[in-house]
Simulated assay, not measured.
Amino acid sequence: MLSFRALSALAALLVSLPAAAAQSPAAVFGIELAEPGTIGPRPVKPEDARRLGLASEALRREVAGRGLEPVDLTPQAAAIRRDAPFYKCEGCAEKIAQAAGAAYVVYGYVQRSAPQVLNLTVTITEAGSGKVLRGGQVVIQGDTDETWLHGVRSLVKNRLFAEPLPNRS
């Protein structure tokens, strides 16, 4: 992980950027569904696919409001399909982000631990080095649109863009 000094510098950079003037380009990938224990791809249920889309769009809006400007990943659609899921591939998200002109990478996944309990994990890395800058996890209790969206907002606010705690990094 990064040192306290590096986290402080990143936080200062993201907080001090004028919203309109200095947006940092970021590849914000769609949130994926992680299903441990399954072998091979499994079709995503329509309700889960819809909620993944809602959560992914909320993540894009939330990080855009905090100084990271999502880049258009449409030209990289074939590479995204080929390399996904990003929580398993080591460095492929960063390569796609660099090709899209992004300085940062934001990706995440939801893992169902019980029918009404989900874990949402999101990571922010540097596209050039792959260094993890920020990451966090939140437990979503309840499988509704609102609980998923609340989980995204909470994670962004309280983990990804929260000020570092003194003497803890």
Rank of each mutant, 00 (worst) to 15 (best):
residue 20 A to E: 10
residue 122 V to M: 06
residue 94 E to R: 00
residue 155 L to Y: 13
residue 1 M to C: 13
residue 99 A to Q: 13
residue 142 G to S: 08
residue 13 L to S: 07
residue 107 Y to V: 00
residue 121 T to E: 13
residue 82 R to G: 04
residue 101 G to V: 13
residue 117 V to L: 14
residue 44 V to M: 05
residue 79 A to P: 01
residue 148 W to T: 01
residue 86 F to L: 12
residue 153 R to L: 00
residue 147 T to C: 00
residue 28 V to G: 11
residue 55 A to K: 01
residue 17 L to G: 15
residue 52 L to K: 10
residue 68 L to Q: 04
residue 93 A to C: 09
residue 99 A to V: 04
residue 139 V to Q: 14
residue 11 A to W: 13
residue 94 E to F: 05
residue 130 G to T: 01
residue 13 L to G: 06
residue 126 E to V: 03
residue 160 L to I: 02
residue 13 L to H: 12
residue 92 C to V: 05
residue 85 P to I: 08
residue 26 A to I: 06
residue 48 D to G: 06
residue 134 R to I: 05
residue 85 P to E: 13
residue 76 Q to H: 04
residue 64 A to H: 04
residue 88 K to L: 15
residue 5 R to S: 15
residue 102 A to W: 07
residue 153 R to I: 00
residue 70 P to L: 07
residue 31 I to M: 04
residue 138 V to A: 07
residue 66 R to M: 03
residue 16 S to N: 14
residue 2 L to I: 00
residue 50 R to G: 04
residue 161 F to R: 06
residue 102 A to M: 03
residue 161 F to V: 06
residue 5 R to C: 01
residue 94 E to A: 12
residue 95 K to S: 11
residue 88 K to W: 00
residue 95 K to V: 07
residue 18 P to L: 03
residue 137 Q to S: 11
residue 56 S to W: 01
residue 24 S to N: 09
residue 125 T to N: 14
residue 32 E to H: 10
residue 118 L to W: 11
residue 98 Q to L: 15
residue 93 A to R: 07
residue 156 V to D: 00
residue 40 G to R: 06
residue 111 Q to L: 08
residue 84 A to F: 08
residue 112 R to A: 14
residue 20 A to M: 02
residue 99 A to Y: 02
residue 158 N to D: 14
residue 112 R to M: 14
residue 57 E to C: 02
residue 149 L to S: 08
residue 67 G to R: 05
residue 113 S to T: 14
residue 36 P to V: 02
residue 118 L to E: 03
residue 37 G to A: 01
residue 108 G to T: 02
residue 131 K to E: 15
residue 130 G to H: 00
residue 60 R to A: 09
residue 29 F to M: 09
residue 162 A to R: 11
residue 14 L to E: 11
residue 113 S to C: 02
residue 114 A to V: 00
residue 13 L to W: 05
residue 50 R to E: 09
residue 104 Y to N: 12
residue 41 P to R: 10
residue 162 A to S: 09
residue 39 I to G: 14
residue 169 S to Y: 07
residue 12 A to C: 07
residue 37 G to E: 01
residue 150 H to S: 08
residue 120 L to E: 02
residue 66 R to Q: 05
residue 130 G to M: 01
residue 133 L to N: 10
residue 77 A to V: 07
residue 160 L to R: 02
residue 13 L to C: 11
residue 82 R to E: 12
residue 77 A to K: 13
residue 24 S to V: 15
residue 86 F to P: 05
residue 6 A to W: 05
residue 137 Q to N: 13
residue 127 A to W: 01
residue 169 S to L: 00
residue 66 R to L: 06
residue 3 S to A: 07
residue 136 G to S: 02
residue 91 G to W: 03
